[in-house]
């Protein structure tokens, strides 16, 4: 199994601790006197998202987590699993609902996503930063109300609900920022 020495620690490095994969957020070398040096590490548990602090003896080796970020195309949801494919190799992966998490509401078939694989199974799914989705349901737009900047809820084809300006109508395709869940613009045709 691969491992990392504490002097290789840097942010973004993936470690396996107590059988959970972690990513390093911050690493600090500390040595208060002439004695043993330590690495104080802030890291995120990739399964739970929780951020923890841990201190390692400098020089120690820590097992690496076999975690890899891969671009994949979202294929379909079968009611239990979300299916993804690596376009180059046609390799397919099935992700559980808890790995997909909130990303599910932005997943449109054939869109590209960043899938984090751990020991070759999907651990996390990040949707594209911007997605273009059609509005399936919203109140009719009010003419002449475009300047006031009022908003109304709109349901998208994936089931997500976002606030859109009053002039946007059902059936239109809009661009959404998935990091904030906010409307950006109408999609250009």
């Amino acid at each position: 199994m691969a491992s990392f020495n504490t002097n290789e620690f840097r942010s973004g490095l993936k470690l396996l601790i107590d059988n959970d994969p972690y990513t390093i957020i911050e690493n600090e070398f500390v040595k208060p006197g002439k004695g043993q040096a330590f690495n104080r590490v802030k890291m995120r548990n990739l399964k739970t998202g929780r951020v923890v602090d841990k201190t390692f003896k400098s020089g120690e080796s820590v097992e690496a987590a076999d975690v890899m970020d891969t671009d994949m195309q979202y294929l379909y949801f079968d009611g239990e699993f979300y299916h993804f494919m690596v376009p180059d190799t046609f390799e397919q992966y099935a992700a559980e609902a808890n790995a997909v998490g909130d990303a599910a509401q932005w997943l449109k078939e054939q869109d590209m996503c960043l899938v984090t694989l751990w020991d070759n199974s999907p651990l996390m799914v990040a949707p594209p930063n911007f997605v273009e989705l059609a509005i399936t349901e919203t109140d009719p737009g009010l003419k002449g109300d475009t300047a006031q900047g009022g908003v109304k809820p709109a349901t998208l084809e994936t089931g997500a609900v976002v606030k859109v300006p009053l002039f946007v109508e059902e059936g239109e395709v809009i661009k959404v920022d998935t990091r904030t869940g906010e409307y950006v613009s109408r999609a250009r045709d």
Binding site: V30, K31, P32, G35, Q36, F38, D53, T55, K57
Partner: peptide, 22 residues
């Protein structure tokens, strides 16, 4: 203090000196 109680005695002392005393 978030250290590893399995460390050798001297290492634990250095750790406590750094985190608690210093």
């Amino acid at each position: 203090q978030g250290g590893d109680p399995g460390w050798p005695r001297g290492v634990q002392q250095d750790y406590l000196f750094g985190t608690v005393v210093a």
